[in-house]
Design a protein around this nucleic acid. Structure first.
Length: 278
DNA sequence: CATATGTCCTGAGAGC
DNA sequence: TGCTCTCAGGACATAT
């Protein structure tokens, strides 16, 4: 479930490796099926060992370790991946380890389900893979007019559209429900029936919620999987309004109970009093 | 082109 | 109690 706030928290948690030299990279033997590391460990080791980290960034829901020659190592956590500086939740799910000359002495990649990816891209590959046709603008940069230009003619429900990373990068299933609740938009509302005024509201709400969630270091759900780089849980789950709250009172109107529906095989939570369809 | 559906994977929890 | 089954949702391949 790592979405933009959780991945941004992971990024910030390993910032101390900026300027450090990589002294080793290692695929950790683990009893589980190995995760995908591309192109292969020999190549990654050869191109990273002895090189300095120029910057630690984020693109959508991926952590990007940019090297001095602009090669980039990406961590894509998908469902259960974590980037940690030490102290993993369990040893058996540690998949990858890097060591550094200074700053944080090591960075681990941990992944219980193993759906995540680690991959190395040269500058050309990076540019191609994350061109605007492959990945939309970052969710922290949206505006009302931008959202209207991206989604304004789509017939899809707004909740489903917000999850499309080719359109906007960073929003996942949890924050989509939270954003639409605060914006007062019904999740099944068709994009092409949303007004500019509503797009403005969705844009502002998106930025507000994601930034607040970053401040609170993301959301750790009841399964406890997500942790920051120090293996501490996030805090934003205590501020959730609707996600995973079916049957509980809406925090806005109090009396109406939160409804759960399924859209594109994913759960959506909303208040049918506060979120009316046009 | 836009949109819809199936797939990967593990462990928690439900139900018997 | 212990087994089997379903479900959770990231991104992407493939189908319509």
């Amino acid at each position: 479930m790592p979405e933009l706030p959780e991945v941004e928290t992971m990024r910030r948690g390993i910032l101390a490796i900026e300027g450090a030299e990589i002294t080793s990279v290692e695929k950790v033997r683990c009893s589980r099926k190995p995760i995908s590391i591309l192109p292969n460990m020999a190549t990654i080791r050869r191109r990273l060992t002895g090189k300095k980290v120029k910057a630690v960034g984020r693109i959508g829901k991926r952590v990007v370790i940019q090297m001095e020659n602009d090669d980039r190592l990406l961590f894509e956590p998908r469902m259960t991946g974590l980037v940690l500086v030490a102290d993993p939740p369990s040893q058996e799910h540690v998949r990858f380890r890097m060591e550094f000359s200074l700053g944080e002495k090591e960075v681990l990649y941990w992944d219980r389900r193993g759906l995540g990816l680690i991959y190395l891209l040269n500058p050309q590959q990076y540019q191609d893979r994350f061109s605007l046709e492959n990945l939309g603008p970052d969710a922290l940069d949206v505006t009302g007019p931008l959202l209207k230009s991206i989604f304004g003619k789509a017939r899809r429900p707004i909740k489903v559209a917000l999850l499309d990373q080719k359109k906007v990068a960073g929003i996942g299933n949890l924050y989509a429900s939270e954003i639409l609740h605060v914006a007062g938009i019904h999740p099944a509302q068709r994009c092409d029936r949303i007004t500019l005024k509503q797009w403005n509201l969705i844009a502002q709400t998106t930025i507000d919620i994601l930034q607040t969630a970053i401040t609170h270091e993301g959301s750790t759900l009841s399964d406890g999987t997500y942790r920051n780089a120090l293996n501490d849980p996030g805090g934003y789950q205590n501020m959730h309004r609707v996600y995973d709250k079916e049957g509980q009172g809406c925090p806005l109107c109090i009396q109406t109970k939160i409804t759960r529906i399924v859209q594109a095989q994913r759960s959506t939570f909303f208040c049918k009093t506060c979120q009316k369809r046009r």
